[in-house]
């Protein structure tokens, strides 16, 4: 889940690929999503990428609730089918 989110952010050019790889390799490391320069186009693009790669739908308006990467990972994990 974590690597898919980071991969989506990296593909969209919101974070560097090396940063995505480092964050993916260290589950304890966190990243402030508040710093990502999303707008209404990119946030939908991001949500669609997440839905495509994980099968879990996320509402663009919800994105503002997640301040950090680990919060988003936890929320998506909680929604994933057991």
């Amino acid at each position: 889940m974590r690597s898919r989110i980071l991969s989506a952010l990296s593909q969209m050019g919101e974070i560097e690929q090396t940063q995505a790889e480092e964050l993916a390799a260290d589950p304890q490391a966190d990243f402030e999503l508040l710093r990502v320069n999303f707008d209404s186009l990119t946030v939908i693009d991001f949500c669609l990428r997440i839905e495509t790669s994980t099968g879990i739908a996320i509402d663009p308006d919800e994105m503002a609730e997640f301040g950090a990467l680990n919060e988003l990972v936890a929320a998506l994990m909680a929604r994933s089918p057991r």
Binding site: D39, S40, V43
Partner: peptide
């Protein structure tokens, strides 16, 4: 004009 975007991120 970012202010007119429906989704304004913290950074913006």
């Amino acid at each position: 004009t970012k202010i007119f975007d429906h989704y304004a991120s913290f950074k913006q």
